[in-house]
Amino acid sequence: MPRRPRYHADVLAVPPKRQPPTRQVGLRLGIVLTDRASGFSGTVVEYESGVIVLEAADDGGRRAFGYEPDRFTQDGRPIRLTKGGVGIRRPATMTSASGAVVDRGAAPKVARASRIWVEGTHDAQLLERVWGDELRDLAIVVEPLGGADDLVSAVRTFRPGGTRRLGVLLDHLVPGSKETRIADDVRRSLDPTASQAVLVDGHPYVDVWAGVRPQVLGIAAWPDVPRGQPWKEGVAAALGVADHRDVWRRALGGVSSFADLETPLIGAVERLLDFLTVGD
């Protein structure tokens, strides 16, 4: 009997269109919706730039969801959500994709001297996708390093100290990894004053791709890639995709809020933001 391929579905294929439910509901403030995937139910309190914010009635907790016409149910029944509703007001504040409340009408701010450094372009794209509005509200700039091998030298050149703070987000920050050794080297290289102005943090994933929940791609889990094989190319091969860049484009395009990311990645970014804004 021929072996079934492990990943037999084309994750980049456009899914067939579902027959729209007969009941259509116009998107507007005050209606109650339930997200099919997570089961989270709440009142629509905000809609902006393709992000719907629901507020739970029991504890007031809020979650952000990307607008998809067939994503929600109402009163236990599937609906097709349309943008034709009335009453989508634009309050003075908005809940960003990262869950932060930011000032919608604030004038552009001068960037802080403090920075967040990430290893590469994909990391920067993902932070912009989820935390972009919050970063602009906080006047924090994210800069890709192009790799972390020269991090000790780069930190020394940055000259951290006082309010000139630096947060560094590293991939694969686990015991025994190259990134953990680099982080330790940075800490040892800093004098007491500079060490108070630098935080090196990270997540356990080999690449930031894996910080995106695999369900965004329609798979149960990211493929296991044999040790020593390039991870991105190995993932693409396991998924039957010729160009690994197509996998990232699909993953990034499917992220609409922090709810589409894994908790360790969210936690690392939030710790860096807290560190850079201490005293605000």
Rank of each mutant, 00 (worst) to 15 (best):
L265T: 08
L199H: 06
R71V: 07
G42H: 07
D274I: 06
W209K: 08
R6C: 00
G99F: 09
R90N: 03
S195K: 07
A113K: 15
R4K: 13
V206S: 13
R129V: 00
R77A: 15
G253Y: 12
D58R: 15
S98D: 14
H122K: 06
M94Y: 11
L81V: 02
S195Q: 13
L81M: 12
P160H: 06
P69S: 14
Q19D: 14
R129H: 03
R4Y: 01
Q215C: 00
G202R: 04
A100L: 08
Y67T: 12
M1F: 09
Y7S: 03
S38V: 01
T22L: 12
S38P: 02
G267K: 11
D35Q: 05
A57Q: 12
W231C: 02
A13H: 11
V198S: 02
Y205L: 01
V155F: 04
A107M: 08
R112W: 00
H172D: 13
S257G: 11
R77D: 12
G61F: 03
A64L: 06
P108E: 02
A97F: 01
V155K: 10
D246H: 13
H244F: 14
A111L: 13
P108T: 03
G132V: 01
D123P: 07
E262N: 15
R3W: 06
V25M: 04
G147K: 00
R77G: 09
D171L: 11
E48D: 15
E68M: 00
V241Y: 04
K17F: 01
T82I: 00
S114Q: 07
V45S: 10
T43N: 11
Y47M: 09
R156Y: 02
L138W: 01
G66I: 01
L252H: 06
V255D: 08
K178R: 14
G50Q: 02
